[in-house]
Amino acid sequence: MIPDLTVRVGAALLYIILAPLVGGLVVGIDRKVTARMQGRVGPPVLQPFYDVLKLFEKENLVVATAQNYYVLSYLVFMAVAGALFFSGGDMLLVIFAFTLSHIFLVLGAYNSFSPYSHIGAERELIQIIAYEPMIILTAVGMYMVTKTFYVGEIATSTIPIIMYLPGIFIGYLIVLTIKLRKSPFDLSTSHHAHQEIVKGVTTDFTGPNLAIIEISHWYEYVFLLGVVYLFFAFNPFIAIAAIIVAYFVEILIDNTTSRVKWQLTLRTAWIIAGTLCLVNLGVLYYLQGVLTL
């Protein structure tokens, strides 16, 4: 049941156009909710858009010209990864494109010889190695349930994937915290109104480049929440409710925890989330052998 080419291309284009809007809105709501949790009024919901538009009005001050290239590649490949995802492409390919785009961000940070962005880059890398296995295992889990790696087919399958993959779902939520740059795992850089001494990977980016990074984050958010959707794809309403609940939980975690060291991040992601995923997969594997699902 692969939708034909026009539908796929259409979905990809739709993602490329709409994802920044949706992502920005999600971030805006996130900031509002966060402010309310802290007993503040908070910024307008459209604040993220104001921020990005402002950044585009600023001058582009760089340490090395190549920074522009890395940041642009980050955006482009993030959009490619997301577009592949929403056009129903191969999940593994999506993940590799996703990693590729992050490597560009890391390289952009390494590009400037500042201790701050250097540490940011190292930490971003640690985050990548913390979450990447889990995302791959998520894809593998979905394959084991639906027998396909194609997002299009997973999304239209009627199997309640979440029933088979509860462990993987929790593991995914753990790495989602890392990916959304939420406390306690916001190692490399945090988002919006967090008070920082300096800002990790983004330290040496200014104006338009910073705006591009922000837009890439929005693309990323939509993609990541899209993966949550897949777990509940059998019923779109439940799925959307699940996305909202999951995101709310992430905000709650963000506001009730403080940042941990990278060691603990890596351990949590590999040992706790990894074990959850692998046990889940193992049980599934065993059951499939016994029950011949």
Partner: peptide
Amino acid sequence: ERFGIINTGN
């Protein structure tokens, strides 16, 4: 932050 003001460290 109501006014979009953020204290950056950088």
